[in-house]
């Protein structure tokens, strides 16, 4: 086992272990911190895959932004509002059976497909080609993402603004 492999499988363990804590933990604040570990593990995967820019974006946006948001959410509303979503929360055992089945099917399919994987080696720094793609071939999705951000920002601000009743 090379050092890289040790790091990779270590990251796997941390990632899946903390993901399990997210779905099993009793304390939501701890769950949110476990999610940090999972997301950093995913960023490590990106590094292994040579996606340096994406790894940075993952840490900055996900861990720095989304997670902070979630923590705020947890701390401001924790234990006070438990929402039962309509699918009806399932008991742990049937839930585990269902998730296990999903995992088994996925693994079976992943193993049965001949992926024709070819490794061209780690690409160089990706920020420049990514930037060029975003203003070239992927210009429209890039612009749509900006519209999406604008409207989400506006909507979120509107939803939390305190309104006086007429």
């Amino acid at each position: 086992m090379t050092a890289a492999q040790v790091v990779f499988y270590g990251a796997c363990l941390v990632m899946l272990g903390s993901a399990l804590y997210v779905v099993l933990g009793r304390n939501l604040v701890h769950c949110a911190f476990a999610l940090v570990a999972t997301l950093v593990g995913v960023a490590a995967f990106y590094v292994f895959l040579g996606a340096d820019f994406l790894a940075g974006a993952q840490v900055l946006i996900y861990v720095g932004g989304i997670l902070t948001l979630l923590l705020f959410g947890v701390m401001l509303t924790n234990r006070i509002y438990d929402l039962k979503i309509s699918t009806g929360a399932v008991q742990v055992f049937p839930g585990a059976v269902a998730a296990g089945l999903v995992f088994a099917v996925l693994v079976w399919i992943i193993r049965s497909v001949d992926w024709n994987a070819m490794d061209t080696g780690a690409p160089g720094p990706t920020s420049e080609p990514l930037g060029k793609l975003l203003i070239g071939d992927y210009l429209l999705p890039f612009e749509i993402a900006s519209v999406l951000l604008l409207i989400a920002l506006m909507g979120a601000a509107m939803l939390v603004r305190r309104r006086t009743r007429p």
Binding site: M15, L16, A19, L20, V22, V23, T38, T87, A89, V90, Q91, V92, P94, G95, A96, A98, A99, G100, V102, F103, L106
Partner: peptide
């Protein structure tokens, strides 16, 4: 990771 997520959503 997907399956863990599904488990969480269900439970």
């Amino acid at each position: 990771l997907f399956s863990v997520g599904v488990f969480g959503i269900l439970t």
